[in-house]
Amino acid sequence: SDIDSSPTDTTSDLEHLSENICKSHMETCQYLREELEPSKWQTVLNTELEAYQKKSQEEMWQVCAVKVTEAVQYVVEFAKRIDGFMELCQNDQIVLLKAGSLEVVFVRMCRAYDSQNNSVYFDGKYAGPEVFRSLGCDDLISSVFDFAKSMSSLQLTEDEIGLFSAYVLMSSDRSWLQEKNRVEKLQQRIQAALQNLLQKNQRDKGVLTKMICKVSTVRGLCSRHMEKLSAFRALHPDTVHSRFPPLYKELFGS
């Protein structure tokens, strides 16, 4: 796992990295694909929909902050298992997770998305965008669902999702990185491993480009989440302060 090794990786080096990342993804994906099979779960019933919509904005934000925090914790574990991540300096580990953990949650969401009903696994059910109405962020929610839909239309395998998640996380253009070059090198190796995997899976040549184009979309979603959070906090500072998970505040608080 020496991330400063020679710049020319052999195919077997890339396969080794690929295996490590795919294994890490599977060990930390929160729900297995089989568990998320939409046929195993009900969609939110009308009575439940009403209950979600009747929740106050504060209550619904709190529910979602808890769910996001749970999902982020699995992403932290994912990062820790990627060869090379724990060899980065601690400042950079934190910078990468602060900037990228929610992006990976959004990428992973395509696994839990049912395109037939435009719904996503949430709180033990498959829920459409209307379930989140009381958050008061319809535009953001609808963009998150659109993103899940377009990601899921790529029909990526678990391995492809794992490598793409690692690629998203190891972005060398984040502000405040101390060892940009090391992160850049790691990301280049991940990209090469992803490219190698896509070739092996006989995917169209355009798939990698399509995936890389998604990076700016997912970044946009995360910055809009930050804007919505700061608007919400301006209205309900006490709710955020006393009822939101500490990790959520640490990641998105400033």
């Binding site: 932290v76 574990e77 580990q93 990790l247």
Partner: peptide
């Protein structure tokens, strides 16, 4: 460090998703 104490702790712990 103080500002990111939970992240620090998560990075240092040998936690697994089962423990989360």
């Amino acid at each position: 460090k103080e500002k990111h104490k939970i992240l620090h702790r998560l990075l240092q712990n040998s936690t697994s998703p089962v423990d989360l």
